[in-house]
């Protein structure tokens, strides 16, 4: 548990460095999802970074591609590519594009960036696994913004129709999108009831609590129908001036702000280590 907390903190530091170096990117969602990505890449996903297209791997589709900094950091830290390459984020000729690019890095499973695509792709992948009688899981991370899109709800119904019990969806429910609070812009409440009405199993957790994340993922694997983990996360988690402020959805910190953020995160790292 402590190890995963330290990893999540490291991912947050990577995110700040990447986005600040790129002078563009989406810090709030990426920071908010660091605990979940630490849990996925360092504990839950059955993957092999040295053989990323191994056919029996668990698959992860990131539908809200704009938070890819957290995924790149987690992948670099698990050995998919050198940590040093994180510096190339959003720069010319980089394989870690501003939004995920499958052809540049097949271990991403799919490109994404326009919201509302990922869940349909994950449904298709899960159907393929079922046709091949495989036992691996397909995970799909989606955001509040993805749930604005009608196409996501088409996919929710498809997963129910085909009883996709090896599909696990994680909603980054951080209540912000680029123009403000989600419930003002495009209300999603009551989100769990909406999923339940499509015959999904729902699990609600604090998405910044490693213990709850691991318990939920373990429970989700045992479900006999599609399952959604509605993870309430704090956007900008770990950086005081970014937390719960929608203005940091898609804005990079400047040099001084990045230094302040890193100072806070390093202090937190020591606290976890000594705690």
């Amino acid at each position: 548990m402590k190890k995963l907390k330290l990893i999540a903190n490291t991912l947050r530091q990577d995110i700040i460095r990447m986005i600040s170096e790129a002078e563009s990117g989406h810090p709030a969602g990426a920071l908010g999802m660091a605990d979940i990505f630490a849990a996925l890449y360092f504990k839950v996903l059955n993957q092999n970074p040295k053989n990323p297209t191994w056919p029996d791997r668990d698959k992860l589709v990131l539908s809200n591609g704009h938070i890819c900094a957290v995924r790149y950091a987690a992948m670099a830290r698990t050995g998919y590519f050198p940590v040093n390459e994180l510096k190339t984020f959003r720069k010319i000729n980089s394989k870690i594009q501003g939004h995920p690019s499958y052809v540049d890095m097949p271990s991403l499973e799919s490109s994404s960036g326009s919201l509302g695509h990922g869940l349909s792709i994950a449904v298709g992948m899960t159907l393929a696994e079922k046709l091949d009688k495989k036992k691996n899981f397909v995970f799909c991370v989606i955001s509040d913004g993805d749930l604005n899109e009608g196409s996501t709800w088409e996919a929710v119904n498809a997963a129910n129709k085909y009883c996709l019990d090896n599909l696990i969806v994680i909603v980054d429910r951080n209540y912000i999108q680029i123009s403000g609070n989600t419930e003002k812009i495009w209300p999603l409440k009551p989100l769990d009831k909406k999923f339940k009405s499509y015959n999904w199993q729902t699990i609600k957790i604090n998405g910044n609590n490693i213990k709850q994340i691991l318990e939920a993922l373990s429970k989700a694997k045992k479900a006999n129908k599609p399952v959604v983990i509605i993870a309430k996360t704090t956007p900008g988690k770990g950086v005081s001036y970014m937390e719960n402020n929608y203005k940091w959805h898609g804005k990079p910190p400047n040099k001084e702000q990045a230094e302040k953020a890193l100072k806070e995160l390093m202090k937190e790292y020591r606290k976890i280590k000594n705690g």
Binding site: K59, V61, Y102, E109, S110, G116, H117, L119, S120, I121, A122, V123, G124, M125, T126, L127, A128, E129, L131, D132, G150, S151, E154, A155, N157, A158, Y162
Partner: peptide, 28 residues
């Protein structure tokens, strides 16, 4: 019938599902 997927009047999802099937080695 096992390899036929009726997607309903939900074309966006159908295209995405086909992409997912293709990325997993099928020819949709």
């Amino acid at each position: 019938p096992d390899r036929f997927f009726q997607c309903g009047v939900a074309e966006q999802n159908m295209v995405g599902m086909a992409a997912g099937l293709a990325l997993s080695g099928k020819t949709p």
